[in-house]
């Protein structure tokens, strides 16, 4: 088996007395679309900057394709970055920006022109070669930044909150597009985001960061359906925890357990529960209309609260907003509850 595209070993970084990254070990395979997900200040961007070479680790190593690059300068590393603010060169036109990496590596003029035009075509920006970054929209700048990085055919492409500056509509378009570009070029994409939906929809695997460490690495489905820790459960999706006495009373076992809101069924108190299911009674404290679905907040009799998300298949939210204060039974499949590290 070939070496991983990126391997991080015991990576740590402290700024003064602040420990931004406190021990990260991670292997990212060649050709993977990998997301580093976490709240701001969780260390994910610092890890990205250490891979790019902008920050030197306090300890630990960064390997690219099996070679230790920990002490190499950014310009000696076979990675390219799409910056959050794009960092396009304002005094160069689009073509100048895209050709820059090839120019400083002394690629002959004709070849670099051809490759730059091909890169611009791959991000669908033909005809914009002579524009200045100041004359482009946010989405177009984002594509230029992408082309400028991809034209160098790096081993790994690093993307720092690549879609953060775009509005919702454009962001959804670019999510699909980034994914298809990555499939076309076959380069390892490593991107940083605080948006759990973005991480889940785009990536092959996700690492969830919290307080300078990785809490869990897995496919989007694993991270969402089987969160390893309470933090992951709450950061990726809505946290629905049953713990302590409530766990004893409802589930008959010790520990902390989580059930995703959409796995819960809001039923009448007397509804039957079969052997494969668990249930808990409680009082509806809030009914929130959310367009295609309705969110119920239920205070459990055994203690704690659960949020249930019901698709508005039969009824509309307008019909059920009157349910506030009524007593209900929440029912779910046992296989949808899972123990987590609190």
């Amino acid at each position: 088996m070939s070496d991983p595209a990126v391997r991080l070993c015991g990576l740590r970084k402290s700024f003064g007395g602040v420990h931004a990254v406190t021990g990260v070990d991670l292997d990212i395979a060649d050709g993977e679309f990998f997301a580093m997900l976490g709240p701001s200040g969780s260390g994910k961007t610092t890890v990205l900057r250490m891979i790019a070479g902008f920050e030197a680790p306090t300890s630990g190593t960064v390997e690219l394709g099996g070679a230790d690059v920990t002490r190499l300068a950014p310009f000696e590393r076979d990675v390219n970055t799409v910056f959050q603010d794009y960092a396009l060169f304002p005094h160069m036109d689009v073509l100048g920006n895209v050709e820059y990496g090839l120019r400083v590596k002394r690629v002959p003029r004709a070849e670099r022109r051809g490759r730059a035009l091909a890169a611009l075509a791959s991000v669908r920006l033909e005809g914009y070669e002579r524009r200045r970054p100041g004359q482009l929209s946010g989405g177009q700048r984002q594509r230029v930044a992408l082309a400028r990085a991809l034209v160098n055919r790096p081993r790994v492409l690093l993307l720092d909150e690549p879609l953060g500056a775009l509005d919702l509509k454009l962001r959804e378009e670019m999510q699909v597009e980034l994914k298809s570009i990555q499939r076309e070029v076959g380069i390892t994409f490593l991107f940083v985001t605080h948006d759990q939906e973005e991480a889940l929809t785009m990536s092959d695997r996700v690492a969830v960061f919290n307080e300078g460490r990785i809490e869990q690495v897995g496919t989007p489905a694993e991270v969402y359906e089987r969160p390893a820790t309470a933090f992951v459960a709450s950061f990726v999706g809505t946290s629905n925890l049953i713990s302590g006495e409530a766990a004893q009373a409802v589930l008959g076992k010790e520990g902390t357990f989580s059930v995703r809101p959409e796995k819960l069924r809001v039923a009448a108190l007397g509804d039957p529960v079969d052997g494969a299911e668990h249930s808990a009674t409680g009082t509806v404290s809030e009914v929130v209309y959310a367009g295609p679905a309705t969110r119920f907040v239920v205070e459990l009799d055994a203690g704690g609260r659960l949020i249930a998300l019901q698709q508005n298949l039969q009824v509309s939210s307008m019909d059920v907003t009157g349910l506030r204060g009524t007593r209900v039974r929440l029912v779910w499949q046992r296989r949808h509850e899972f123990a987590i590290v609190p």
Partner: peptide
Amino acid sequence: LGASVEEASADLGADAFTTFRLVTFPM
């Protein structure tokens, strides 16, 4: 300007002198 354009230049393979010549100084 901020420092990110210079980081971008380094990221794209330019050493400190090239970055100054092609990016920092022209700006």
